[in-house]
């Protein structure tokens, strides 16, 4: 089971903080983050890159973005 961080409904910058914490803790090479604003989607892409990860895939479904990030 891949790790999923559900940050939907959280206001900026909480989704980014959760993503940064998850990247720090995880043993996995990929994480899925769920957010519901364009701002959070953009910011998570920046946060991932700053940690040496990259956005692999973004799926927009039911007003939510499922962002797959992967360790480079």
């Amino acid at each position: 089971m891949k790790e999923i961080i559900d940050a939907s409904g959280l206001s900026c910058p909480q989704p980014v903080i959760r993503t940064l914490n998850a990247i720090k803790k995880t043993q996995e090479n990929e994480l899925t983050i769920i957010v519901d604003t364009e701002t959070s989607k953009e910011n998570i892409s920046r946060a991932a890159q700053a940690q040496g990860w990259k956005v692999d895939d973004v799926v927009f479904e039911d007003d939510q973005y499922r962002i797959l990030i992967r360790k480079e």
Binding site: C12, P13, V16, T19, E42, N43, R46, A50
Partner: peptide, 8 residues
């Protein structure tokens, strides 16, 4: 900004 702390 690089960490994604950019306001909406």
């Amino acid at each position: 900004a690089q960490l994604g702390l950019v306001p909406a």
